[in-house]
């Protein structure tokens, strides 16, 4: 199973994905230098990604804490999520995300 992560240069990276792992962990394990400063506790907004609109409905919506934390991210859109709060399942095989400015 894989996810596709577009990095800040616009390069698409195919990254091996593991069930139950957060997308932040998958991106880091895949060798992409993502800041993710708080280590995945939804406390810093430095793992900001844009989820491809085609995948948005397959992911549980952001909770109140995540929405609040996104105030500390830049150029937040309707597709914005914190990668540490998206947990990979087999239904997400092929998920496409793009790194946002300020997360690396």
């Amino acid at each position: 199973m894989h996810i596709y992560c577009t990095d800040i240069e616009g390069k698409v990276n195919e990254l091996p994905a593991t069930e139950e792992w957060s997308v932040m962990e998958i991106i880091r394990e895949g060798g992409i230098a993502m800041l993710a400063q708080c280590g995945g506790s939804c406390a810093c907004a430095t793992c900001h990604v844009y989820v491809d609109p085609a995948w948005k409905d397959k992911i549980p919506p952001a909770g109140e804490e995540e929405i609040g934390m996104l105030d500390g991210a830049f150029e937040v859109t309707a597709d914005s999520r914190l990668a540490c709060q998206i947990f990979f399942t087999k239904e997400l095989d092929g998920l496409k995300v793009t790194l946002a400015n300020g997360s690396m």
Partner: peptide, 9 residues
């Protein structure tokens, strides 16, 4: 402009 987006390390 003043920008307040929290702190980073």
């Amino acid at each position: 402009m003043l920008a307040f987006y929290g702190l980073t390390m």
